[in-house]
């Protein structure tokens, strides 16, 4: 069964249609990339899942049950526009947010200690947020998102503003959370950041869903039979072999993208290439998510 099912959600603000009949299904224990350019409607969809705003039409199910207000406790949400009370102490703030998520004060304190230690913030527990660096404040926000051990974690543009060290730290935490049974929705317009993390993706463009599926399946589906070849010598267009780009590398090597619709398998193409040049490297060029996205919205 799916963890989260979004069915036929529509939402409009005044004359602007923010979401147009969006349906998604997100399996258990996966990292799900919700992709799309700025203004596509990602944040609106996330707010609807979190019941911060209500859709005009459509329904949301968590674990097969239609969402109610009480069920938002099973979700942890890190908004894109996020902040904390500046004049509140780190531990107090976490305790407050955890209790709002329904945790008992006792459980919350235990988990706060655990997470502050894990993210190396222990000595800061009694400091005001305004005394923390931006990176440390972001770690606190991350703790607030996951402290109540939600089934579903929604991270809206989680890496915007994170320095590379912290971004890496958070990436590892996300992977660990999935290993421990959580499902993560990951919303971003920076496709390259999800390339390695996501299992499944959906793309939204101009309030409509344009693509959905597992990352590998989507990438396979968008294969064009193009190969990247590094070689020495002169490569000419011959027969069915088409060269789409060529660039000089160091050490007298040249890199080209080649394609041969007549070839049954890579070996046939490789044989044709060997006849012309000295091949140093040969690999299939599988399109990146970014390229797939761009080709889909064109």
């Amino acid at each position: 069964m799916e963890l989260l099912t979004v069915s036929n959600i529509s939402k409009s603000y005044n004359a602007h249609q923010a979401l147009d009949d969006i349906s998604l299904s997100i399996p258990h224990q996966c990292i799900f990339g919700l992709l799309g350019p700025n203004g596509a409607g990602k944040t609106t969809l996330i707010r609807i899942i979190n019941r911060i705003i209500r859709p005009d039409a459509g329904r949301v199910f968590l674990n097969g049950e239609e969402m109610t207000d009480g069920m938002v406790r099973k979700i942890g949400y890190l908004p894109e526009e996020r902040g904390l009370y500046k004049k509140m102490k780190v531990a107090e703030q976490l305790l407050y947010l955890a209790r709002l998520k329904g945790m008992s004060a006792r459980d919350a304190r235990r988990k706060i200690r655990f997470w502050l230690e894990k993210l190396e913030l222990s000595i800061w527990w009694n400091k005001n947020i305004e005394d923390l660096s931006k990176g440390m404040a972001q770690k606190v926000q991350f703790i607030a998102t996951v402290i109540h051990e939600p089934d579903l974690i929604i991270l809206d543009e989680p890496f915007s503003g994170f320095d590379p060290v912290n971004a890496d730290l958070i990436k590892n935490e996300i992977l660990e959370l999935r290993k421990n049974g959580s499902t993560v929705i990951f919303s971003t317009h920076r496709m390259e950041s999800v390339e390695e993390l996501c299992d499944d993706i959906a793309m939204i463009n101009r309030s409509r869903k344009v693509l959905e599926g597992s990352k590998s399946e989507i990438r396979n589906r968008h294969r064009t039979g193009t190969y990247q070849v590094d070689f020495k010598g002169q490569l000419q267009t011959s027969g069915k072999v088409k060269i789409s780009s060529m660039e000089a590398l160091e050490g007298g090597l040249t890199r080209a993208l080649v394609k041969d619709p007549s070839a049954q398998n890579p070996n046939q193409l490789l044989q044709k290439l060997i006849e012309q040049v000295e091949v140093h490297g040969f690999a299939e060029k599988i399109p990146s998510i970014n390229e797939i996205f761009i080709s889909n919205v064109k």
Partner: peptide, 11 residues
Amino acid sequence: NTRIVEIILSS
């Protein structure tokens, strides 16, 4: 202004 409101509104 501190944008904590959206975090709170998710609970």
